[in-house]
């Protein structure tokens, strides 16, 4: 397994360098803006403008590490298939558990190392900007890192299950598109609920049914949004452990189904001729009958 972990990290190193380079460049810009605010031309603006500018650059620098997160994911599964490393892997004494574990561990190692970089840079930026270090600077990063990890292991599962880049990519993208649509649905429902609340509180106003295309006039919406935000924040403060348990359970479940997906031979052997009826599925061409090995096609 050490060999596989080394392979994953070795193949990802270029992405890591680029991601770190982008992050350090961003940080440099933020520090230069801060210096300009203290010693340069920016200090000629109003005090509030300078304060807002330095605030924005400070938080951009702190949370800019999340831009670099995707570079720390050992997403080499596609190049494993293209290079036929996955064929070679099957001829070696590596078990499916070792293969999947190596992918998880290598990404975990890289995200942890990014966490260390994040903490060190945050401490340094707090010193430069004269700000107090808060725990949520790290908690937000950990949350995003974990979500990135979940996305990565789900993508890994799609490749192990479908064994083809196009199918795996389609399923992965379709899943997140569905989540995006669900998110849009939730947001629109909340906005309609805000509109109803606003109508109930202001019956004298003649508000047309349906969601207004221009919500900027109704600043009251920000009141309802704040209420929702506080409710969610309080929920997470009380029940953050539920989310952690759910995410860990999801990771473990994806691990085991990835292992079992990888155990399946390339052509779903074990089926008799009678079992191999043409499957009718929503995805149409995704259920085409399996072909013979490369080189044995007629």
């Amino acid at each position: 397994m050490k060999g596989l972990i080394f392979k994953e990290i070795y193949l990802t190193r270029k992405k890591i360098y680029i991601s770190l380079g982008i992050y350090f460049f961003l940080m440099l810009i933020c520090v230069l803006v801060k210096l300009s605010a203290v010693h340069g031309n920016l200090r000629l603006l109003s005090e509030e403008a300078v304060k807002n500018t330095t605030n924005i650059t400070f938080y951009l620098a702190i949370f800019g590490t999340m831009l670099a997160l995707s570079g720390f994911v050992a997403d080499n599964i596609n190049s494993d298939i293209v290079s036929r490393w996955s064929d070679f892997q099957r001829s070696t004494p590596m078990s499916e558990k070792q293969v999947v574990s190596a992918a998880y561990i290598s990404t975990g190692i890289m995200l942890l190392s990014m966490l260390v970089v994040h903490i060190l840079m945050t401490l340094m930026l707090c010193a430069v900007f004269g700000e107090i270090f808060h725990a949520y600077f790290v908690l937000v990063f950990i949350t995003f890192a974990f979500l990135t990890f979940i996305m990565y292991i789900f993508r890994l599962f799609c490749f192990y299950r479908f064994r083809q880049q196009k199918k795996a990519q389609f399923v992965f993208s379709a899943t997140f598109f569905c989540l995006y649509l669900a998110g849009c649905f939730v947001i629109i429902n909340r906005l309609l609920a805000y509109q109803d609340k606003f109508k109930a509180e202001n019956p004298q106003l003649d508000i047309e049914p349906g969601l207004s295309s221009d919500l900027s006039d109704n600043m009251e919406f920000s009141k309802y949004l704040k209420e929702d935000f506080i409710t969610v924040k309080n929920f997470f403060i009380s029940y953050w452990w539920v989310l952690v348990i759910l995410l860990i359970a999801l990771s473990v479940a994806l691990y085991f189904i990835s292992v079992s997906a990888l155990k399946r031979p390339f052509d779903l052997a074990g089926q008799t001729l009678e079992d191999k009826k043409e499957k009718k599925s929503f995805f149409g061409s995704l259920s085409k009958p399996k072909k013979a090995a490369k080189g044995d096609e007629n």
Partner: peptide, 15 residues
């Protein structure tokens, strides 16, 4: 060749 094009012999040995 079933090895990634970015690898070299030294890294292959380590793997």
């Amino acid at each position: 060749l079933p090895f990634h094009e970015q690898l070299n012999a030294k890294s292959l040995d380590k793997i």
